[in-house]
Amino acid sequence: MEEVLQVANEFGVWILAGLVVSIALVQAILYYKLSFKAGEELGIPKEDCKAAFKTGVITSIGPSFAVFVIMVGLMSVIGGPMAWMRLAVIGSAPAELTAAQIGANAYNADFGGAGYDLTAMSVGWWTMAINGAGWLLFVGFFAHKLEKLRDKVAGGDKKWLAVLSGGAMLGVFGYLNAGSVLALGGEVVAVVVGAVAMIVLLKISEHYSVLKEYSLGLAMLVGMFAAVLLG
């Protein structure tokens, strides 16, 4: 394992991982510029565009710290560069771990244990790459078709489009919460307290609007620490 990880942390792997990470950065910069241009066309003030960007930055500090914690764990099993690349692009830690594990098992090796040599690691890398490619290729080739599908479903009714987005959001997050609710313990505390805290914070921010952009981050912290205390 030691020797395998040494290869996984070689300078050349860092460079190649860095190239992929930089694609995400380049894409973000290009879309940032494009958004301002389109915003101008739609009559959105520049300050509003900046405020939207800033809200995204602030809202994601908490969850990014969680990704940070998970990534440090992941680095010790798949090496620094691969963890960096997989969590900056496409990845989520559970999917990557599963893929690396499936890869090693397909080669009859225990992930990180008996028989885990360079070849076993290469099967793991292959599996992570081919798995990520599934999402990237589908979205790369077909995302613009989904735009047409949405237009069809909405049928030009703007009010219905708003309700549709709200329904989709409740469905997605209902699905994401269902697992935690059924898991009981700390997780269900986090869900319920997080939800209640968010509602309270948004009510308060109707009077103190500066609070609004921090509300999600704060609600998350309240939910988490309630879970630690009561879970």
């Binding site: 409740l170 997780e187 939800a195 609600a219 939910g223």
Partner: peptide, 28 residues
Amino acid sequence: RDYTAPAIFGAVFGQFTMKYPKLAPFGI
């Protein structure tokens, strides 16, 4: 590590429950 995901999922659900309280029971 353990509770960020459920806490933020709960919070976003809370945000949209305020907007569409009648839909929230179906969403969950």
